[in-house]
Amino acid sequence: MDAVNGGGQSVLSNVDSIVDTGTTLVVGDTESVAQLYEAIGGQDASNTVGEGYYTFPCNDVPSVSLTFGGKSFPISSSTFNLGQVSSGSSDCVGGIVGSSGESFWIVGDVFLANVYTVFDLAKNRVGFADLA
């Protein structure tokens, strides 16, 4: 992955990643996910939601995109926003989470729901295109 972008700027670059249709969220190493949420105004919710999760104000969903092959693909607010922390809460849970066991990012459905994806096993590559 060329970059992880938040709020219109590149926050992380040259990120090792795999694309996994069997993973619901986007999962990254704890440190780089913390950098992303710091850049977009997220709050650590490890003590309230779960280890590695972050929240943001529901009325201000951050702009996040991932760049592959020099092209940036936005994650829609509807897939990035996992919903309210609890009923009536003004804070929502972000779809990118940190995991201390990862040295690479796992790009799952939170991102994949926003693009067409082609897996080319013969050439060991993955391609993305904008949804029509």
Rank of each mutant, 00 (worst) to 15 (best):
D20P: 02
N5W: 01
I75H: 00
E102F: 15
F80M: 08
V11D: 10
Q43E: 08
Y116W: 05
S63I: 05
T48Y: 02
V93G: 05
Q9T: 10
V26I: 13
A3N: 11
Y53Q: 09
T67S: 12
N5V: 02
N124A: 15
V19A: 09
V19S: 11
T117H: 13
N81K: 03
V115L: 10
F104Y: 15
D20Y: 01
V26A: 11
A45K: 14
Q84N: 13
F56Q: 05
T79H: 06
I75Y: 00
I75P: 00
T21H: 04
A3R: 15
C58S: 04
V115H: 07
V85Y: 03
V49H: 13
Q84F: 07
S78F: 01
D109F: 11
Q35A: 14
G101V: 14
S10M: 03
F73Q: 03
T48W: 00
N81G: 06
F68K: 05
G101W: 12
G7V: 06
F111C: 09
F80P: 04
K71L: 11
S86C: 02
T55L: 10
S63Y: 10
A34N: 02
T23D: 03
I106A: 11
V11L: 04
G101N: 15
V61T: 15
S100P: 04
D44V: 00
I96P: 00
T24E: 14
D120N: 13
T30Y: 07
S17N: 10
A113T: 00
G127L: 06
V19E: 12
D91R: 12
V118N: 15
V4C: 09
S87P: 13
V33W: 02
E51Y: 04
T30K: 13
Q35P: 03
S78A: 07
P62E: 03
N81Y: 04
R125Y: 09
S72A: 15
S65Y: 11
W105L: 01
V33R: 08
G94K: 04
V15S: 05
G41Q: 04
S65M: 10
T24I: 12
F68L: 09
N124T: 12
I75E: 00
L121M: 13
L121K: 10
S77E: 15
L82D: 05
T21P: 07
V85C: 03
S86L: 04
S99L: 14
G101H: 11
S63V: 12
A132D: 12
Y37F: 15
G28Q: 08
S46D: 11
Y53A: 14
G7W: 04
S89T: 01
S89A: 07
P57F: 02
S32E: 15
D130S: 13
Q9V: 11
V19W: 10
